[in-house]
Design a protein around this nucleic acid. Sequence first.
DNA 1: GATGAATGAGGATTCATTCAT
DNA 2: TATGAATGAATCCTCATTCAT
Lengths: 210, 210, 210, 210
Amino acid sequence: MPRVSQEHKDARRREITEAALRCVLREGFHKTTMADIIRESGLSAGAVYGYFSSKTEIILALVQLSIGGTLSAVQQRLESDVDLGLAETLDDLVHAIDRLARDPEGDLTVVGVQAWAEAMRDPEVHEILAPQMRAVRALWQSIAEREIARGRLPSGADPEQVARVMTGLMPGFIVQRALLQDMDPEGYADGFRALLSAGVPAAEQGATAG
Amino acid sequence: MPRVSQEHKDARRREITEAALRCVLREGFHKTTMADIIRESGLSAGAVYGYFSSKTEIILALVQLSIGGTLSAVQQRLESDVDLGLAETLDDLVHAIDRLARDPEGDLTVVGVQAWAEAMRDPEVHEILAPQMRAVRALWQSIAEREIARGRLPSGADPEQVARVMTGLMPGFIVQRALLQDMDPEGYADGFRALLSAGVPAAEQGATAG
Amino acid sequence: MPRVSQEHKDARRREITEAALRCVLREGFHKTTMADIIRESGLSAGAVYGYFSSKTEIILALVQLSIGGTLSAVQQRLESDVDLGLAETLDDLVHAIDRLARDPEGDLTVVGVQAWAEAMRDPEVHEILAPQMRAVRALWQSIAEREIARGRLPSGADPEQVARVMTGLMPGFIVQRALLQDMDPEGYADGFRALLSAGVPAAEQGATAG
Amino acid sequence: MPRVSQEHKDARRREITEAALRCVLREGFHKTTMADIIRESGLSAGAVYGYFSSKTEIILALVQLSIGGTLSAVQQRLESDVDLGLAETLDDLVHAIDRLARDPEGDLTVVGVQAWAEAMRDPEVHEILAPQMRAVRALWQSIAEREIARGRLPSGADPEQVARVMTGLMPGFIVQRALLQDMDPEGYADGFRALLSAGVPAAEQGATAG
DNA sequence: GATGAATGAGGATTCATTCAT
DNA sequence: TATGAATGAATCCTCATTCAT
């Protein structure tokens, strides 16, 4: 009897999504054909359909991967106990995103951008992305609250709005990185630190930035 | 005699891109078919092909429109003589984007997100978007330089990196707006102001935020 | 402008159903492929789909044709004013069916048998066939009632049950004709007349059969 | 030692055809997939192919079953020594068919109708059905001859044609039963008796009909 | 023997574009 | 000039059957 362990099944699904990733990076979700994925995966049509019931399922798996790669890498950092400030957290995150983008298996952040576009008309994709983005916001919000409590943000600041700005910095990094290919996580974090130090008396700036 | 032609031609092209916009908002670039656009425009296939030589041309026109609507609305503000700070400029911009998104003809920011995705694999789209994004960055950079010169940003700040952060705040607003539909330009600007006031002694905060 | 009269449209649909008929007679509903119909019709795939939105639609059109050819040819005879008895009506009908079967365009009675089979699992086909069969029964029933009233059938006879028997004689003819290809409408009607004369005293038989 | 085999083999084949019957009643011959049959039988693909070498074989087995269930149930009655008249024999047969249709394992008469349709294009199915139908006819013919000899049918009647009419009454019952689901064997036989009594003087009808 | 994953040709349908009228 | 029917390659997916384990 053909011994097909769960691991084997998972491995095959992985093979397929990896092949699909390569195709999608070349062609995008819509121009990628099943024939492309089949060819790239080295499997037969029937085999691929044995692991995914439709092209849509493969795309959704990629969307999950890109988000579970992009935003949930975010969550790990935001949920860590280490008590970081806004700039340090952003620094961490942007570095994580940059590593993700450099993954030799393929740049999942590019898939993420495709997913944003797709989420605007496909409720299934939307249902994957929206909760994740809300989760990220919530984590930023708790950091913002902490920063306000410590007097590192103005006491009158609305932590929810601060969270939206911080959340927005990530798509901002990803889009510029993907389009202009000149983004550097270090520099982005530094640019942000400069803003944080906007009104700080020159004498104190060294301390704040450190 | 072939006078009415040009105006007429422009009007027709407008009709077609507007029809295409409605389709693209419903279906996205790729799921929108020429048949959809033809039906929505009320013209015949032949007529549409008289004004655009291919579907790609129509999509590129929409991309232009969304960027010439999104980012060049940005340019207007950034190029204006009024000597605004970072927060005021962002406030202005985000409001402009929000107005664009509320346009009864259709939300061009959503098309913009589709365009980012498309730019990642279609050089033609990339060639439209990349220069515009660079232009926006350049404008932010000159503002940043001014702010540094005036001591409103740390003297050691790199205006280019600050510009990238400021540029990033716009995609960040647009994506959150499109996906979560809860963005408020006022709040976003306020959130940003809170960051600017991060290290400001409490006594001075009122002045800075105003 | 391409002048496409309604007649042209009807003619095209006819071409397609006729092509489909030829295919279905060769291969049956299910083994007939769209490629078969397209080839047989001499049109392109797109053209065929311009006139029928799916293979199912073409099959349903054929079902209609076969029933509107088989059973509604029946109705014409049953509804005619001519005051015929059971045997004469059956004679007429079986001849009509035989003519239909000999149609050089293709034997619609064979399609009818396929339709019966299909009606057993496809509600759409069922919804076409069932009412027609009920209508035929109703017509036979009114003839039966007339015959009872005239004393040509026993006064205690149930006209509804007689109608079901008469209705049953037609599928009986069609199936035998299609399977054994030895049916002769004349003989079938004669066989029926023999039954009608079953208990008639020999002396009267000539009169009854005439 | 390879003893259990044969019985076991038969039992397995039965399981498979029963599973196939359930599938075919739901989906018809062509829409039933091997995967359906495999699932429904609870066996593995390999196992099913161990007992039947192809889907065609399973379908042919079902065709045999439906005919060996429908028409050969007919044969039993027609071949029995009991010296029955036309009406009594029909009564018997229609009841037998009705019982077959009510079989909790699945209505084989519905499969029979599918088989008729199939016989029209598949020589293998035709080769199963045609001889059986001819056999039934022959049996009816011998009854008809007997009835003519006894003066219960006109002396000039053609027993072959009478046989075709009687043979036709069965598909007539089956189709109406399957399509309209309102057939009652008792009533059908009564309807037929009414026809047999068509020309019988009222005084004699009681005797004939009884 | 038994299993069920794999095969891959084949099927229905779509759609950007053209061109006869 | 405008029309919209026609084109046909390309797309997603299915399914009878095999064979390594």
